[in-house]
Design a protein around this nucleic acid. Structure first.
Length: 588
RNA sequence: CCGCCCGUAGCUCAACCGGAUAGAGCACCGGCCUUCUAAGCCGGGGGUUAGGGGUUCGAGUCCCUUCGGGCGGGCCA
């Protein structure tokens, strides 16, 4: 006999089907009806068969019910509605799960090892400044998805892709250097498209404190190497032509910095990178988000991986030269236009290193690779998958989960955010104001591919209304009751559960029974939010029971049964919250 | 102009790959603390699932269309 009631019912239905319609196959699915009057499980099998058997669904359902093998675990099976078969389980079949939860503890709900190796790559923010609230959402989603998959049975590797090559890092380097020069009164007008944040000044001061004037050059010499910038506009409303001029000016400053500093440019550049990376890492650790691997984009160049990836494409005849640049014929693999992989100046594009990176991921032997990207990157899916196909790799093993943007609202007004301008709310500020638990749970209460409005004022001023406290409170309440009881928890595992008979109690058993199903489904859907919703429902049912019935009653048998159920609830809350990266406090 | 995502209660969001009377939270109204934590519970009002058409036993879910929002469409990252 299968220990899982759902599987058990499916087996009974399969037997009935074989008897009613020999040779006919059907997808036997059991769902848990929302309405308790519809029983504990329902099957639409008869409706599915209506067409094949050319008969009324209700009549088919009647025949199926007649042919169901008897089972002590089934109290009742009846036909209802348009042809549903509703099952009501015997009490003991429901309460059994309490024993399982107590026996399995932290492992309760865990899936069987799948043998699959899965990589989840997330955050991967450019190390050019503090993480902001958008990264916070990606981090919360990625971390809990990774934990969810691991709990469901996969072997998971959490990876952060470090964009330590390319122009953005150069801009950060030159921004730092310009602020450094200001400290020695060598004033180059600070470009509006350089990094504005105070953290840049902090890094400049660090360099001065450590190395004095070693990196100082005259402002005039710096400016001499760059084309002029357009007149500054306080409102930032530059014309497209002026914006282009600004970019060229900035590139000129970078070139001048490299030229004047020579080999010492590497120090400035590296200092800024190391500093920002360490800051981001510390930030994420504090947020409860850990990575197994920090993968450097630059290493792809250093090891020749980028050149090799491009050569592979070339060898297969998927590249062509036009206007001096090398193009990948991605239109042959589902993309809407071809893409440049190597510019006319010989430099590889970001796309080229991305191809190399994904090729590398596949070479590392992952069965499945999940990329978590900002929604603005959705246009990249076709081209990256196209490149994998062109390389004869199985693009279906790569999944992309897009995380929609977070819009912050403060006092009802939208907070405009610009990374370059440095005018944004950082993840650290958000955590300080709202708290880690509330922050992560709030993010996880909506699907990741839905745009999220985060009302800071509400989150701060009414943080007690955050649903996370509701769930945590249930956990703390149970801890409190167990503490007052003062008995030995271990002996609850052997409690007789027959006294559990009320609708509240049997409903809770059903809810606990669902946990493993929720885990499996949420993992399959990449949907940690489903787990968050489940935990809220579980907490709700517990609170309802707690208010309706007393746990610490005089009747010893009843008390032990109820405490066993409470501990089972607590175990599920713990296991679920751990996956979501939210603490389970013993007292509140 | 083209492509992708989205439109569900006043607000923020769910809805088990097409199932039964579309559900929660916040907000609003009315009740419950001399007994295990009131960060809680119980009850109530709130909806043509943006509009229209189609597919079938059955549609918030799938197809077409209109309207309305978001994001993309760089030899930027």
């Amino acid at each position: 006999m299968s220990p899982d009631p759902k599987t058990h019912l499916a087996e009974l239905l399969a037997a009935a089907l074989a008897s009613v319609a020999p040779g006919v196959t059907a997808d036997i699915r059991l769902e848990r009806p929302r309405d308790p009057s519809h029983g504990d499980f329902a099957s639409n099998l008869a409706m599915q068969l209506a067409r094949a058997l050319k008969d009324n669904p209700r009549k088919i359902a009647e025949r199926l019910v007649r042919e169901l093998p008897p089972s002590p675990r089934v109290q009742k099976a009846e036909v209802a509605g348009a042809g549903f078969i509703n099952f009501r389980l015997a009490s003991s079949a429901k309460t059994d799960v309490v024993k399982a939860a107590l026996a399995q503890g932290d492992a309760f709900g865990r899936g069987r090892p799948s043998g699959r190796k899965i990589q989840v790559e997330f955050v991967s923010a450019n190390p050019t400044g503090p993480l902001h609230v958008g990264h916070g959402r990606g981090a919360a989603y990625g971390a809990s998805l990774a934990s969810l998959l691991a709990f469901a049975g996969d072997q998971v590797c959490r990876e952060y892709y470090v964009n330590d090559a390319g122009r953005q890092m150069d801009i950060l380097g030159v921004s730092t250097w310009l602020r450094y020069l200001e400290l020695f009164d060598e004033r180059v007008p600070f470009p509006p498209n350089a990094y504005q944040g105070d953290y840049v000044r902090d890094m400049a001061a660090q360099i001065r404190d450590a190395h004095g004037d070693r990196y100082v050059h005259p402002a005039a010499a710096v400016l001499a190497g760059a084309p002029g910038a357009p007149a500054r506009r306080a409102d930032g409303a530059y014309t497209p032509e002026e914006k282009e001029q600004l970019e060229q000016h900035l590139d000129g400053l970078i070139a001048a910095a490299k030229d004047l500093l020579g080999e010492e440019w590497a120090y400035i550049h590296q200092h800024a990178l190391t500093e920002q990376l360490a800051d981001g890492r510390e930030d994420l650790e504090g947020y409860g988000v850990h990575f197994d691997c920090w993968f450097s984009e630059r290493s792809l160049y250093d090891t020749g991986m980028v050149a090799r990836a491009v050569a592979e494409l070339e060898k297969r005849g998927h590249l062509y030269v036009q206007n001096g640049a090398k193009w990948f014929r991605s239109t042959g693999f589902g993309d809407e236009k071809d893409r440049v992989v190597q510019r006319d100046n010989g430099l590889y594009t970001y796309f080229a290193s991305d191809i190399a990176y994904h090729m590398n991921k596949f070479e590392r032997g992952f069965d499945r690779v999940i990329d978590i990207w900002g929604a603005d990157h959705h246009g990249y899916i076709a081209r990256v998958k196209g490149a994998l196909k062109a390389l004869d790799l199985d693009a279906d093993r790569m999944d992309v989960a897009l995380v929609q943007f977070v819009s912050l609202f403060r006092d009802g007004a939208k907070v405009s955010m610009s990374t370059r301008a440095g005018s944004y709310v950082t993840l650290r500020e958000l955590r300080d104001e709202v708290g880690n638990d509330a922050c992560r749970f709030f993010y996880l209460l909506r699907k990741q591919d839905q745009a999220l409005d985060f009302d800071l004022t509400l989150a701060k001023s009414e943080s007690n209304d955050n649903p996370v406290y509701y769930v945590q409170y249930a956990h703390a309440r149970i801890c409190s009751v167990i503490g007052q009881w003062g008995g030995d928890e271990a002996e609850l595992a052997g409690a007789d559960l027959a006294p559990l008979a009320s609708a509240h109690e049997l409903g809770l058993c059903n809810r606990i029974q669902c946990f493993a199903e929720v885990i499996g489904q949420a993992a399959a859907d990449f949907a940690p939010h489903a787990l968050a919703f489940y935990l809220r429902e579980l907490a709700s049912e517990f609170h309802g029971w707690y208010n309706a019935e007393r746990l610490l009653v005089d009747d010893e048998a009843v008390k032990r049964a109820r405490l066993a159920l409470a501990v089972a609830v607590r175990q599920v809350l713990r296991n679920g919250l751990r996956i979501l990266g939210v603490s389970a406090p013993e007292a509140m």
